[in-house]
Amino acid sequence: MPETRKQNRNNDINDSVDKSLKDTSERVLSSEKREDIWAIIIAGIILLLSAINPDAVYTFFKKTLFMF
């Protein structure tokens, strides 16, 4: 009887490890997709700003941010 209980407990642990791995991989994968979409949005914003005022974007990133 204690043996069966021990086996059941091991199965439960394995199930929870599998579940935790699945949850982790799903979370990380979905965050990777989220990162990709954010990357496209950020690049789109930079393209838009550069199209509206290229000189201001250039001056800010090439001159203003360098203080010394």
Binding site: L49, S50, D55, V57, Y58
Partner: peptide, 8 residues
């Protein structure tokens, strides 16, 4: 625009 993006 591409010249400005290149600075970023």
């Amino acid at each position: 625009p591409f010249w400005a993006m290149n600075a970023v």
